[in-house]
Simulated scan of single mutants.
Amino acid sequence: MIKRANEMSVTLEPHLKGGDGTTRVVNILEPNEMHGTGRLFGISIIPVGGSIGQHTHAGDFETYYILKGKAEVNDNGNIQELGPGDMTHCKDGDFHSIRNIGDIDLEYVAVILYSETKKEEAN
């Protein structure tokens, strides 16, 4: 499969998980293209001052890989500043949030895959 940039769907998520502003998600793969392994593989773009609110992962886990900008991440209570090339991983059962603390859009790869528990329930 090959997709051109203009063929990828874009989702607008206002106040995602109780956060500020509208997060834009470029869906590299649609959930049905992930063959039951997960529900998100995309580029998330958070505007200056925007955020995704604190939330807990249940039945899945999420990884962010920062491409552009400056983020403040709450990783299960551990607050850290991240920039391009940094990553954060939220395990099943843990919580996290992310805020754009820079002066340009924050862009990062976001991947949500199902945990073994969720996969077993699906079978």
Rank of each mutant, 00 (worst) to 15 (best):
E121Y: 07
T56N: 13
E107I: 09
N27V: 10
H15K: 07
H55R: 15
S9C: 06
T23A: 14
L106I: 05
V48W: 04
I46F: 09
I46L: 15
M1I: 13
F95Q: 05
E72H: 01
V26T: 10
Q54W: 09
E72Q: 01
D86K: 13
N32Q: 10
T37F: 07
P31I: 11
I45V: 13
D92Y: 09
G18Q: 04
I43M: 12
H15T: 00
H55Q: 15
G42L: 01
V25S: 02
G53Q: 11
R99Q: 14
G18D: 03
R39G: 15
H15E: 10
G93C: 14
P14S: 02
G42H: 01
Y108N: 02
V48L: 14
V10E: 06
G38C: 09
T63A: 03
T117E: 07
K17S: 08
I79S: 04
I79Q: 00
I28Y: 01
Q80P: 06
F61S: 00
Y64W: 03
H35V: 12
L113M: 09
G42D: 00
D103N: 15
P84D: 08
E30W: 06
R4K: 10
K3L: 14
L67G: 01
S51V: 13
E62Y: 04
L16W: 01
Y64C: 05
P47N: 05
S51A: 15
N74F: 01
G19Y: 07
G38T: 05
T37D: 01
D94V: 12
E121L: 15
Y65P: 04
I2H: 06
N100E: 08
Q80W: 04
V26Q: 03
R24P: 01
T23M: 14
D86V: 12
N78S: 02
S97Y: 09
N76I: 09
H35Q: 07
D86H: 12
G38K: 06
D75E: 15
H89Y: 06
H15S: 13
L67I: 15
F61R: 03
Y64G: 04
V111P: 03
P84W: 11
D75T: 08
I104P: 02
D60T: 11
T63P: 02
L16M: 12
D94P: 07
N78Y: 05
D103I: 15
V25R: 03
E107V: 07
Q80Y: 06
M1K: 08
R4H: 08
E30I: 09
G69A: 08
Y65D: 01
N100P: 12
I2T: 06
G83P: 05
G38D: 03
G102A: 14
L40N: 00
Q54H: 13
E81I: 15
K70S: 10
I52P: 00
S115M: 13
H35S: 07
T117S: 10
I52A: 11
P31M: 09
G19M: 11
D94F: 11
G85Q: 11
P84E: 12
H96P: 04
L82D: 04
G50V: 10
M8N: 04
G50E: 02
S44P: 04
M87H: 05
G83I: 13
V26L: 15
S51F: 10
I46A: 10
L67M: 11
P31L: 09
G77R: 12
R39F: 00
